[in-house]
Design a protein around this nucleic acid. Sequence first.
DNA 1: ACCGTGACGGCGA
DNA 2: TTCGCCGCCACGG
Length: 107
Amino acid sequence: MVRTTEFQEKVYHALRKVPAGKVITYGDLASVVGVASAQAIGGALKRNPYSPQVPCHRVVSSDGSIGGFMGCTEGEQIDRKTGLLRNEGIKVVDGKVKDFSRRRFIF
DNA sequence: ACCGTGACGGCGA
DNA sequence: TTCGCCGCCACGG
């Protein structure tokens, strides 16, 4: 049983609305959930109890960086995250999201 | 492109 | 329950 706070649930719920092939920044996601801290989003994703249900891999940094994945800012986890993004049609080169045009998901 | 600072929430002690 | 520290960040210099 995973204890999730309302904050985390909001984050997960908002993230759930992001379809495959699109990515969102931590800041934008924070804006959606109504908080001013993008880092808090990262913290929530880090403790993400739901793996594929909540596409935490579709969340990238504002500068296009992949960001982190499963608590790691680098390593094979990141490589895996990159693979998932590419699998969804997102172009990722050198740890950066190239197709940044659709990073903004209109809610 | 890189580093430092700012700001907010979560979590542990 | 309260205080302090850390973090998958954002932005300016």
